[in-house]
Structures are given as structure tokens and as C-alpha cells.
Design a protein around this nucleic acid. Structure first.
Lengths: 220, 220
DNA sequence: CATAATGTACGAACTGGTTAGTTTGTCAAC
DNA sequence: GTTGACAAACTAACCAGTTCGTACATTATG
């Protein structure tokens, strides 16, 4: 946690035989991949260590134990995704357009961050017990609600959205459509014998998700 | 696989010191619970055995290995849930009412079968590879589409639904809303600091899901 | 009696975690 | 500017408990 670094010329930071920051990041990145792929119990510390430029000892040196490493990987996933969400800007757009963009963006964003989706799935399998233990993630997600809430409010003022809806619920619905699309692709495609992961199908599902949300909030 | 049973008076089938059918079912039920709770890699054969009236030896006797047991548990989950879906009857209802009932039923059904939801989540973490290996499940789910397809067709004929929609996509949307509600409850509630599992919240979300689907298919 | 069903005990491989020690960087004192 | 002391970064080998699976023996059933 000591981010206080003395004067330090960082030319060639990776060439140094000792590179704590790089090692930590390398371990975290590798662990994130492995946990997302195999789950908490499925991932193997030895396997993670082997895929790292570093060693198993270093994992314990920096992260304490397996659960500590998993927690950091989870936080890492949330942070990465939330940061990416800042890329969305709907200011100045009419509410309908803004909401459309929000849904499209969420749909694409989830689609592009399968690793994150898998981490959330895994965390839900664990009843969210590690998320609860994290004081990093809590504050990270309030802005997500703020954004959709402000769009909704604007839409009501414009008279294009019906009043009385709950922004959190709205967020829930958008999330449901976009999350499920990634999380359940495997079983859904297999059971109904139709690959919904193709660009064609995805474009259609995306369009439907947008329509669904817009029709839901539309003023009569 | 030998379901061929000779003439067999089944008075007191559980009192007999040897009860193959009962043992098998007992193991399967226990394993289903454990796998749904801990995942494939998280579940422990010894733990399953201990919770069984039987022994570890019997697990291997009947199911071969851990993966074999998991596969049967997965099939068992799908079978149970699909059988439960037969409880829905929308014949004779107007299309709008029928669809409303279908969504409500799906919502409640998923809500009541968390173990099934968890098994599907777990299976998706495994990219649906075990589902693929199963020849039992494939045929099981076609009826689900038939039902919603026939309701939709009726609605179009009645002039209350707009034409051109894809029943499979419709099923996808209903599933998304109802599945996510159970699968992501833990993380969603924790992140936004509001328990969406209470009867009150659930009633609201259910109502919204219905509205969302109905508004989506409604003729203009 | 042949076969199906079950109980007991065990082992080989794996896995999370540690012990014990080495190397590298920093910086103050000489 | 060399040295020496100390902390941070890192390595290799190892350990103890776990976990899946099995060998072998025994009992029930038809």
C-alpha cells in the first residue's frame, strides 16, 4: 500500500531485475484470467504461478492467500469495467436518444468484457461474500445509477417518458438483458441449437434490447 | 442404464437393506444440492458421500466418476424444472393474458428453483461442455419454445401483437429478465445497497417484467 | 450359485501454504 | 565513492492435509 516512492528515474522499469509493481500487476492479470476461467475453487495457485513471470512465493508475498488474490482479481474486474463506462457521454442528447445509447453501450460493453461477466457470475455463485468483504467496490457503482437516473428524469421532463418508474429498477432491467446475453450464451445456444453469438444474432438481440427498454419507459 | 426391472412388489421399498433405486436417488439428490451450492470443482465427493445415506463407494458404483455425477445432477435439474413447467396452462386465454401468465409463471418458477438457476450458471462457467455431452437434455427444451411461439402467433392473429418478432428471441428476453433476477441477486443487492429479494421488491420486479414484455410485443 | 449391491480401508496425486535462504536496492556513515 | 547495514524483492524446495478414485471383502437377491 506504500505508494510513496522516492525520487526515481523510471527509465526501463521492466528491465530491472526487481520490479515489484510489474510483478504485482503481472500476477493480478494472470490470476484474473485464471479465476474468470475456472472459478475460485477451480483455479489452481500453481497454475497461476506457472503462467506468471514470477513465482508462487510471490503470490503469497503480495496477496496473502488464495482468497486474497481472488478478492483483488474481483476488485480489478469491477474497476476495469467501471472505468470503461466513463467512455459513455450522453450529455446534450434528447432523452430517448440518450437512453438508446446507454442500452447499446451497456450491451456492447458487457459483450466485450466477458471476463468481467464471468467474475460476477462466479461471485454470485459464492453469494457475493467476497464482494461484501471489499471496501473498494462499494463506492464504485453509484455513478452507474446516477447516469440512468438523470437520463430518465430528463425524459420525464421532456414528456417522452412516463413518470413513476424507479431508476434502479430500470438499471436492473438493462443489466438483465445485457448480462444474460453474455452469461447464458453457452447453454442457451446449445439447448436451442442456434448460436446466438454470431454478429448477426447479436445485432438483432441488441436492437431488441433497446426497443424493449424504450417501449417500457415511453409515455403513452 | 438398466431401467428394466423384473416384477417387483414395492411394499416398503426403503426398509430393505439393499435398495438400489433409493440409493441412486438419494445420491443424486444430495449431489445436486452440493454441486448447486459449490460448483463442480468446489463440491467434494467425500462431502457428498457423507451427506448421503449411502457411501462414496456407491457414488462410483452408480455414476462412474465426479464428472459423471455432475452430468446427472445437471440433467436432473433440467428435467425437474421442465416437468414443473407443464403446470402452466394458457389454453383458451386471450393472447395478452396468456403471455402475461407465461411471464409471471416463468418469473415465479425461476424464483422457486434457485438450485436450477445455480446449476445453469455453473454450467455456463464451464462453457456448457457437459450439457453438450448430454443426450437427455437436448430434446427436453423444445416445448418451451413451442408454448411461447403459439401464444405469440395467436396474438398476431388477434391483432394485439405486432408481427415479425422471433419467438426464440422472445423466449430469450423473458428468460433474461427472470433468470437474472435470481442469478445476480447477491451482487446486485450488495452493490446498490438495496435488497431486491424482499417480497415487496420481487412483486415490483415481476410486474415490470410482465409490462416490459407486453409493451414490447404490443401492436401499435 | 451367479450376480447385483454395499462396506472398509487405503493410496497416489494434488494443492494450498510455508520454511529457509538468496539477491537486489537504498541510504546513511565514513 | 566506498562500505555496510537493513529492508524489500525474490527463489527453490518442501510439507501436511486433502481429494479423487480403487482394491478387496462381504452381504443380499433372484
Amino acid at each position: 500500500m506504500s505508494q510513496v516512492k522516492p525520487v526515481r528515474k523510471d527509465r526501463e522499469p521492466s528491465k530491472r531485475p526487481q520490479d515489484p509493481d510489474g510483478t504485482r500487476k503481472d500476477i493480478l492479470a494472470t490470476a484474473s484470467r485464471e479465476f474468470a476461467l475456472n472459478g475460485l475453487s477451480g483455479a489452481r495457485i500453481d497454475e497461476i504461478a506457472a503462467r506468471t513471470k514470477s513465482s508462487k512465493r510471490m503470490i503469497y508475498y503480495y496477496f496473502g492467500d488464495k482468497e486474497g488474490l481472488y478478492l483483488r482479481a474481483l476488485e480489478n474486474a469491477y474497476r476495469t469495467v467501471r472505468e470503461g463506462e466513463d467512455g459513455l457521454d450522453t450529455d446534450g442528447l434528447p432523452a430517448v436518444e440518450a437512453l438508446r445509447r446507454l442500452v447499446e453501450f451497456t450491451f456492447d460493453h458487457h459483450h466485450e468484457h466477458e471476463e468481467f461477466i464471468r467474475m460476477v457470475m462466479i461471485e454470485n455463485i459464492h453469494h457475493g461474500q467476497y464482494l461484501e468483504r471489499s471496501d473498494v467496490i462499494s463506492g464504485l457503482n453509484e455513478t452507474a445509477i446516477d447516469h440512468i437516473a438523470s437520463i430518465y428524469r430528463r425524459g420525464v421532463e421532456e414528456g417522452v417518458f412516463r413518470p413513476g418508474l424507479d431508476p434502479l429498477e430500470l438499471h436492473w432491467q438493462v443489466s438483465a438483458l445485457c448480462f444474460f446475453n453474455v452469461s447464458n450464451r453457452a447453454t442457451f445456444s446449445r439447448i436451442f441449437g442456434r448460436d446466438i453469438g454470431t454478429p448477426d444474432e447479436q445485432a438483432r438481440l441488441r436492437q431488441s434490447a433497446v426497443e424493449m427498454v424504450l417501449r417500457f419507459v415511453a409515455a403513452d
